[in-house]
Design a protein around this nucleic acid. Sequence first.
DNA 1: GAAATCCGACGAACCGTTTCGCCACCGTCG
DNA 2: CGACGGTGGCGAAACGGTTCGTCGGATTTC
Lengths: 339, 339
Amino acid sequence: MATIKDVAAAAKVSTATVSAVVNDSAYVSPGLRARVLQAVRELGYAPSQLARNLRRGRSELIAIAVADLSNPFYARVVCAAEAAVAAWGYSLVVFNSDEKPEAEKRILGRVRMLHCEGLVLVPVGEASHAGRRDPEGGRLPTVLFGRVIDDDRLDAVTIDNFSASYQATSYLIDLGHTRIGAITGPMHLSTGKQRLEGMEAALRAKNIALDSRFVRQGEFREEAAYSAARGLLTQAERPTALYVASGLMALGVMRAIADVGLRCPEDVSVASTDNIPGVRGLRPSLTRTEHPIVEMVNEAVRLLVDRIKANHRGEGRTVVFQPSLVVGDSCVSLNRPPR
Amino acid sequence: MATIKDVAAAAKVSTATVSAVVNDSAYVSPGLRARVLQAVRELGYAPSQLARNLRRGRSELIAIAVADLSNPFYARVVCAAEAAVAAWGYSLVVFNSDEKPEAEKRILGRVRMLHCEGLVLVPVGEASHAGRRDPEGGRLPTVLFGRVIDDDRLDAVTIDNFSASYQATSYLIDLGHTRIGAITGPMHLSTGKQRLEGMEAALRAKNIALDSRFVRQGEFREEAAYSAARGLLTQAERPTALYVASGLMALGVMRAIADVGLRCPEDVSVASTDNIPGVRGLRPSLTRTEHPIVEMVNEAVRLLVDRIKANHRGEGRTVVFQPSLVVGDSCVSLNRPPR
DNA sequence: GAAATCCGACGAACCGTTTCGCCACCGTCG
DNA sequence: CGACGGTGGCGAAACGGTTCGTCGGATTTC
């Protein structure tokens, strides 16, 4: 591949001049400028980002490490991140920690070696290595996404998980449900924990007890939710409604309901949280809280770029978005006899 | 951040020795070796990939550019690619051309600047810029994925689209359907074209004519499929079965069927092609052809790495995978009166 | 007309590695 | 005892750009 020296030789100028022309970083007389551009065209010259970055100490790379890339929710996040990052002139390097702390650790090392300028991180949970790195200074600009971990030096963008489950549960309660079950995520994740807490709070506000027999915790995965729901629905007594803590899980739950021979919403009402492409296809259409993913990701990248560019060194800033309840027809009212 | 020079100074050796220790590229006496490792640890030194890559002429980056990242199908591809690429020691840079030829062109330039060592490309179609680059030599190792374009110098990994639609259509025919409609993709994409051709061939084999009133072409998107299906199903005469050319489209079609007040499979049978996480949640469960995405991606990355490492310079190699028909209960038989 | 000003182009240092060639020192063998 | 082969470690040249300080010629200003 042609280098800047080849171009300089072909145009009979110095490499400094070629650089000036290519980067528009200094005025170059029209004559030379034309010669240089001509040479660039003839040689098909493209500056090496590698060399440029080495010199400039930049990489124009932003990394995103998600805890479960096979979850369509995070796939959407990656999609939005690609667009957001490109708009700022960066390229996106994608990593999947697959909920494994050691994989996350490996990734953090890799991100550092690649000199990525920033990192959007969906941490694997308490065991995350995000905070405890960089013995001496040189912290990698990082913004946590979705899940938080206890580190107030890091920026974070999250959804109000408490509110999400509170809204969904309140909706079910208002329809007259009192025996409400839950299919929720792991308690070591802020998302799993807060969504359960919001649900409990909503129940408590109406003096309803959460029946522990109706609560199942497991991975935020379709299969986990499927078997949890099967178990939950085939026991002697079962709830009249379910709160499902993620969209992917909702897919599994709906499948389980059908597979055990029940109908939604006639036999069991379902409300869920978060949103993946597949849930729109569900019949009945699911009552759920939706997350403004694109806005959240844009904000995350904005925070990140701000920290990179302005060298923002302050405390971690946290931006919390609000979920909105989207009512479908997966819930039935017990207040009046169903039609 | 600490550099190799800092380490060299701290350990009182030359940078060459540090490099030898860090890379295990030459024998270093135990004494020095220990001093170097000690210094590395104290300074928290990690070699700069930037500088290393510049010197080695490598980037340890593989790029993937997909035509529509918001399609869960490609999100799965990206997920699989991340794993495959990591297994070979590379990191994955993700791009989304959003079906726009000019975006793809921009991406190709960016991939080149970043010195990515290879590219997995889902081209935007005939207008793809993949082939016509690099005036002089220096071709970027590229493997086409899913869709092909007319360039026999490029490796390609695809699914047998013809067979997919042939199988699905034959299945519908065997159930007694003769008025079969199609919701399919754009004809300028090999996937859209071949899937329609396979369907036509299956019909022709049974002497059934394809009624053009029952065929709708559009983008491989959920909304496009939704409105196409609505239009198709609300005209005076309608087909008894539909072949839908993608999983994402199937989601839209199922929604449309419900929204126009029809039932699947009683009123209209549906068979589709390809597989996204959401379709498993559909009730009735969809009859479809599935793609071995993970295997396909692994093969694509293998071909790519082979070309990178061994500098494979030969003709483009094409690997075609076979889809398999998964029978659900979204199709009804017309041969006997339904129970 | 000489001095001061300006500015386009250039040379060279530098970014942080790897790697090649060389040197010095060791033990060994004649 | 001297020549010699082997080898651990070093110095310095790349890799391909950017950028700062400088130079010299043209223009302006007294």
